[in-house]
Design a protein around this nucleic acid. Structure first.
Lengths: 339, 339
DNA sequence: TTGTAGGCGTTATCAG
DNA sequence: CTGATAACGCCTACAA
């Protein structure tokens, strides 16, 4: 692979001159610039990026670290991210690491070249963040509340979303509310937390027997409800909760299905509320009431935040994406309450 | 950012010793190795990837160069690619470049670090391939028939697919067959080509008036058919073709819709055949007969081919992905022909 | 077992 | 306007 030295020899000038000519320095005569360009053409020379990056840091690319492509769910988000990159003249790449530990992931990140990064990766531990910070480049996290000098967070406003759901349930006459929680990421923790705080705030009773773990999976949620039917909790009209608030729509779908199979009618016998408002919400029968937010907006905001942090003396901050209640048939109106 | 020199100072050893200790050289005493490791921990040292890459080339990552994420269509392919990477211990990244010229794209590629790449990018011109070849790393193209020492192609067997479609149409009694072509990529050219050759081979008449350009878009295809109805070509029972073979399902959907709006019945008055077998095929009324191939398989094959080319004295080659006729209601049986 | 020294391909500084 | 030359951070003979 031709190096700058080869070019300099062929053009009959010094290495420094080649560098200057190529990097658009003004103090170069037209004649030599052309000689250099000609040599570059003939040799098919391209600067060695690694050597260059040792001196200057600019790559003109924004990185997205993301555990997988399983969720076709996220396609829209990546798309909006790329839109934001493109509008600002940046390339983008999505790096999927097989790292199974935080340190390995850090190694992956630190061995990639980018001007800024959006990171959404459960594996990354907070205590390793200082390692990333060594490289003076902006990072935006989508699952961590960790602002720093060059670090921001773009997060779903889970508390607001859960509150909207709980208030709606309360105002429509539901008091005994069950929670089907998820696991494994920031949102699962926050939604569980918000549920606990929200119930207290609304002075609604929290029944430990109504707190379920559905692992964010449809089948797990289904099984739990089916299982508890045998145990009697849902079969018994007295013991049954008025509503099940699910931490995502996927589980809600499983719950609706299970309740139906048990012989209960949603929403007459029991209401179900989801979270996310994705395709699963409409696959439910009846259609699922849920909490909506925009993944597209999240992606775009994240990239814009990276760009903002690149500016001279920007400071990291936390940015919460708004949520909205979506009313659909899976929640009944038990009695008219004030809104 | 702490460098190897900082580590060496802190550990009280030389730079070379640090390097040896970290890279698992055997000739290091346990005592010094521990000293070094301790210093590394304390400093949060990570080797500078660019400096390292100047000497050794290994990144343990496979790159995918891909113009955009618009097509949710391709999610499955990326997923299967990552599966293949992961099974073989590689990370993967998808690089989306805003490059609008072949040279800029080459620059993007050459300024990324990877052990091998899968490239699917219309913008990349064949004459620039030698530039890529300068870096002795395997490349697999999904839209170019250009085998080289370290270059392979993984391609849809468009000719076979088109032939399958044409033979089916012929055997079901269609002789006047129109073609709705696409544009802008390898597959559009190949499918058009295959259609011409196939029609000749089957001794079917090619009518220039039946050759349409739908730009791979539903709306464009729709308009063309609607438009030609006014002109009379489709309204006139005599002039009308027996079938329209579309170069993708997206256009086929537009064609079916247009024919319906004109007042023609598919497949009684005219048959429609697509290509791809994706979600659009089932959105047609009636469901679309089409040509199927597996994008998942393509992605997987492409990555495996990159991996194969990494082996000592592998040679590039062309790999054709198989196609299959999918029979559905959009094609009628005009008379019983031999099969 | 450890250290010294040279080089990888650039860019930046500073003479000429 | 052009050319030496010193970094950048790491690896790897080779020497001690």
């Amino acid at each position: 692979m031709a190096s700058i030295r080869d070019v300099s020899k062929r053009a009959g000038v010094s290495i420094a001159t080649v560098s200057n000519a190529l990097n658009g320095q003004p103090n170069i005569s037209e004649a030599t610039r052309e000689k250099v360009l000609k040599a570059v053409q003939e040799l098919g020379y391209f600067p060695n990026i690694n050597a260059r990056l040792m001196k200057t840091a600019k790559t003109n690319a924004i990185a997205v670290f993301y555990p997988n492509f399983n969720a076709s769910f996220y396609t829209g988000m990546l798309q909006s991210m790329y839109g934001a990159c493109r509008e600002n003249g940046y390339d983008m790449f999505v790096y999927i690491s097989k790292a199974d530990t935080s340190r390995k992931l850090v190694a992956s990140i630190l061995s990639s070249n980018f001007d800024g990064a959006v990171i959404l990766h459960e594996k990354l531990a907070e205590e390793d963040l200082p390692l990333l910070a060594q490289r003076k480049v902006p990072y935006v996290f989508m699952d961590k509340e960790v602002p720093g000098k060059l670090m921001s967070g773009v997060l779903i406003n889970n508390f607001k979303g859960i509150m909207q759901g709980l208030e709606y349930l309360k105002h429509t006459g539901h008091t005994r509310i069950a929670f089907m929680g998820g696991t494994g990421n920031y949102d699962s923790v926050m939604r569980h937390d918000a549920f606990m705080r929200g119930m207290k705030k609304l002075r609604l009773p929290i029944d430990p027997d109504y707190m379920f773990q559905g692992y964010f999976q449809e089948d797990a949620a289904y099984s739990i409800i089916r299982g508890s039917a045998t145990g009697g909790r849902f079969a018994n009209d007295k013991a049954r909760p008025d509503a099940v608030f699910c931490a995502n729509d996927v589980m809600a779908k499983g719950v609706v299905r299970a309740l139906c199979d048990i012989g209960l009618n949603v929403p007459r016998d029991i209401s179900v509320l989801g979270f996310d408002d994705n395709e699963y919400a409409l696959q439910c029968a009846p259609p699922l009431a849920t909490i909506r937010y925009s993944l597209e907006d999240m992606g775009r905001q994240a990239v814009l935040e990276v760009l903002r942090l690149m500016k001279p003396k920007a400071q990291g901050k936390l940015l919460y994406i708004d949520t909205k209640l979506v009313v659909r048939e899976s929640v009944s109106i038990r009695y008219e309450g004030e809104l």
